[in-house]
C-alpha cells in the first residue's frame, strides 16, 4: 500500500512539470508585465525596459523558466511585488478561507445530493425522480453568481439571517466563521449538488439492476438495507470520483463566489494578482491548486480500495 502511494506521488511529477510549463508560458505571453503595473500608467517605455531588465524579465523564456523551476524545487516560489511577502506565505494566508468554504460547500452538496440521488434512483420513473432530475438540471444550468445573488437578496437583505458579504476568520469564533461562510458555501454547494445528484442517481440505477441485489432481496433483507448496504457500497466508486472532482473544482473554481462575497481566498488572490501581473503569485497559486487537485484525486484512488477490494493494490 505504501509503495503504491509512493509510486502514485512520483507519477505526479511529470503532471506538475507540464502544468508549470504551460502556466509559465501563458503568463509570459499575456501583454503587460509587473513592470508596467508597478510603475503606473505614466511610466515611459525606457523606465519599463529598465525595470524589466532589473527584474530579469528580458531574459529568454527558457532561462526564466528554468530559473523559476529550480527555485520552486528548492522551496522558493518567488516573492510578490505587491504583497511584500513570499508567494508561499501569501498562499498560506489566502488558502484557509478557500479551504473552509470548499469543505462547507462540499458538506452542503453531499447532504443535498446523496439522499436525493439514492431516492431518485430507487423510485425511478416516479414524480420524485422526475422532479429530482429536473431540479438538478436547472441547478446545473443556473449560473453560480446568479444563485449567489438570489441567496444574498433572500437571506441577507430580506430575512437578514446571514451577512450579505464579508468574512470572519476562525479566530473570531467558529460560529461567526460559519455565519459568514454559510451563503457562499450554500450557493457553491447547490451547484455541486446538482451534478452529484445526477451522478449518484445514475451509478445507483446501474447497480440496482445487478444480480446481487436480487440475491440480497432473496435473502429477505429489508429494502433500506438492500439499498444502503449493497447498492450504495457497490455504486460508491462512481460517487467518490464525482465527489473528488467536485471538491477539486470547489477549490479551484471559487473566483466568482469569493469576489461576490468578498472573501479573501485563493480565488480573490488569483484575480488581483492577474490584474497586477504579479507573475510569481499567479504561477504559485496555479501550481498549488494543481497540486491539490492531483492530491485529491490520489486520495480518491486510495479510498477506492476501501470501498472496492478488487481495486485494492496488492490484491490479486
Amino acid at each position: 500500500m505504501l509503495s503504491y502511494i509512493l509510486k502514485r506521488i512520483l507519477s505526479l511529477i511529470p503532471v506538475l512539470f507540464v502544468v508549470s510549463c504551460v502556466v509559465f508560458l501563458v503568463v509570459y505571453i499575456i501583454p503587460g508585465g509587473p513592470a508596467t503595473a508597478l510603475l503606473g500608467l505614466e511610466a515611459t517605455p525606457d523606465q519599463i525596459e529598465a525595470l524589466n531588465t532589473e527584474l530579469g524579465f528580458n531574459r529568454p523564456f527558457f532561462v526564466q523558466y528554468a530559473d523559476w523551476f529550480v527555485n520552486v524545487l528548492k522551496g522558493d516560489w518567488g516573492t510578490s511585488y505587491f504583497l511584500h511577502q513570499s508567494v508561499l506565505e501569501a498562499i498560506g494566508e489566502y488558502f484557509l478561507p478557500t479551504l473552509s468554504l470548499a469543505v462547507l460547500a462540499q458538506i452542503f452538496a453531499l447532504i443535498l445530493s446523496v439522499p436525493l440521488g439514492i431516492l431518485a434512483a430507487y423510485r425511478r420513473g416516479t414524480a420524485l425522480d422526475v422532479t429530482a432530475v429536473s431540479v438538478s438540471l436547472v441547478g446545473a444550468a443556473l449560473p453560480g453568481f446568479l444563485l449567489s445573488m438570489f441567496l444574498m437578496l433572500l437571506f441577507g437583505v430580506h430575512l437578514q439571517i446571514f451577512p450579505v458579504a464579508g468574512y470572519a476568520g476562525l479566530e473570531e469564533g467558529l460560529a461567526e466563521h460559519l455565519r459568514y461562510l454559510f451563503l457562499p458555501a450554500l450557493s457553491l454547494g447547490i451547484v455541486q449538488a446538482a451534478y452529484l445528484t445526477r451522478m449518484t442517481r445514475s451509478s445507483l440505477l446501474e447497480v440496482l439492476y445487478k444480480n446481487f441485489i436480487q440475491t440480497a432481496r432473496a435473502k429477505g433483507i429489508k429494502e433500506s438495507k438492500v439499498v444502503l448496504k449493497y447498492a450504495l457500497k457497490n455504486g460508491a466508486p462512481v460517487i467518490l470520483t464525482a465527489v473528488g472532482q467536485s471538491f477539486g473544482s470547489l477549490i479551484a473554481g471559487t473566483i466568482v463566489t469569493e469576489t461576490l462575497f468578498n472573501i479573501p481566498g485563493l480565488g480573490m488572490l488569483t484575480l488581483t494578482s492577474i490584474n497586477r501581473r504579479d507573475v510569481f503569485v499567479i504561477q504559485g497559486v496555479v501550481l498549488f491548486i494543481t497540486l491539490l487537485y492531483v492530491l485529491v484525486n490520489l486520495a480518491v484512488d486510495i479510498l477506492y480500495g476501501f470501498v472496492d477490494p478488487r481495486l485494492r493494490p496488492g490484491r490479486k
Partner: peptide, 15 residues
C-alpha cells in the same frame, strides 16, 4: 431460498 445462475454476479463483489 434461491440459488442463481451466475455465482460471481449473484454475490456482492465488495462484501
Amino acid at each position: 431460498s434461491v440459488i442463481f445462475q451466475d455465482p460471481l454476479n449473484s454475490l456482492s463483489p465488495v462484501h
